[in-house]
Write a protein that binds this DNA or RNA. Structure first.
Lengths: 208, 208
DNA sequence: TGTACATCAGTGAACGCGCGTTCACTGATGTAC
DNA sequence: TGTACATCAGTGAACGCGCGTTCACTGATGTAC
């Protein structure tokens, strides 16, 4: 039998989500360090003081947004990296996946790109931790690949982080291209694919 | 004969520079989009209204900081990329150069990393333009290299931008390591060197 | 060189405004019996 | 099922404060003769 939340709990979660959504919208045009608590509650339509029932501060809300933006991506990344088909196709599929993710969640991607080096330390730390997890996970999947025979753990992690950084750069370029014509997005996809391919060629010929 | 600035002009430039310096200091712990004009003037010790004699807004000050942070780097990058010696040594020298630059100008590097995707559009644009110039310049130098025979202009630019992005990532990692122990900085240098080397290996075996 | 006037970087008072945070509250929901 | 009490998400008034911007000003520097 499914556990139904009480009415009170359900309403609270709804308000909390509304605050997160409103904040994410406002953050398209500013940084977290200038986001005001009153702005957020005004956008939702609740009293400023209601904010404190859910978050200690806007920085606290920011770390919740990091979890929302990156927390659910881990399985997706694992399967994308691990799927064993032709290396060239795998890269094209990865780039395609990034493009679709940026289309579907532009505000989340923008938030991560912006706050990764932003002015709010707890949020930077939360993002860094998530990206480090991505790095480890990509490393784990790469390790299973026969191509990784003879690779040290350090070198595998070095390569994994190179891929992760490259994915982020690509996502951020797709984001910029969202407002432009479709050709621009196609150009970004082609450049990203060739860069990933070049890295993969480097991997094939690597001797530690 | 050298042209001496009038006393008035000299004093004005001095105040302007003091505003830029103070802003850069304040931006170590926040984003430009939350930097207040009064904060800056207070830090310098002038009246808030004096700000308007030099900048229209904090966004305007931001674009001036972009020029200060990146404008003088073009010759340095050109010579680093173009110097023709062993490829492995060139990479080590480049990483070393980045490390020293981060040591010498940590606040400038932080500012660029933070505002590249920050909440102030004119500043993002100014940074994008400077980085695009870096990409073109690196491409020009790579083109002179005998290794680039048979490479299309597009592929050379793709590779050049890969190097530029990699330099930025490396600079940002050195920045984080600044507060840590010396071993951490050494680790960053080694990882960055190997990543650059892997990219260069990819370059050697690239077939368009 | 000296004088009379123009320029303009920096001042200081004043303004209206939105901010984060506190506090006691209300009334719907939850719980014990 | 009905009743009496507890919980707690959201309210609304109030606070002191710093913000960006305006304006007329001052007095050192610059310029014309």
């Amino acid at each position: 039998m499914s556990h139904t939340l009480g009415i009170r709990q359900a309403q609270k979660q709804k308000t909390r989500q509304a605050l997160l959504d409103a904040a994410l919208g406002l953050l398209e045009e500013q940084s977290l360090s200038s986001l005001g608590l009153r702005e957020v509650t005004r956008a939702v339509g609740v009293a400023p003081t209601a904010f404190y029932r859910h978050f200690r501060s806007t920085a606290d809300l920011g770390t919740a947004l990091v979890e929302e933006a990156l927390g659910s991506l881990h399985p997706m990344i694992r399967t994308t990296v691990s799927t064993a088909d032709d290396s060239g196709e795998r890269i094209e599929r990865a780039v395609e996946l990034i493009a679709r993710h940026v289309d579907a969640y532009p505000a989340h991607v923008r938030f991560i790109a912006r706050e990764r080096h932003g002015g709010v330390q707890p949020v930077r730390n939360a993002i860094r931790e998530q990206l480090a997890r991505f790095g480890q996970e990509v490393k784990d999947e790469l390790a299973k690949d026969p191509e990784s025979a003879g690779w040290s753990e350090d070198d595998l992690l070095m390569l994994a982080n190179l891929y992760v950084d490259q994915m982020l750069i690509t996502a951020s370029l797709f984001l910029e291209a969202l407002e432009g014509p479709a050709e621009e997005r196609e150009r970004v996809a082609q450049v990203a694919t060739r860069q990933m391919r070049l890295i993969s060629i480097g991997r094939e010929h690597w001797r530690s």
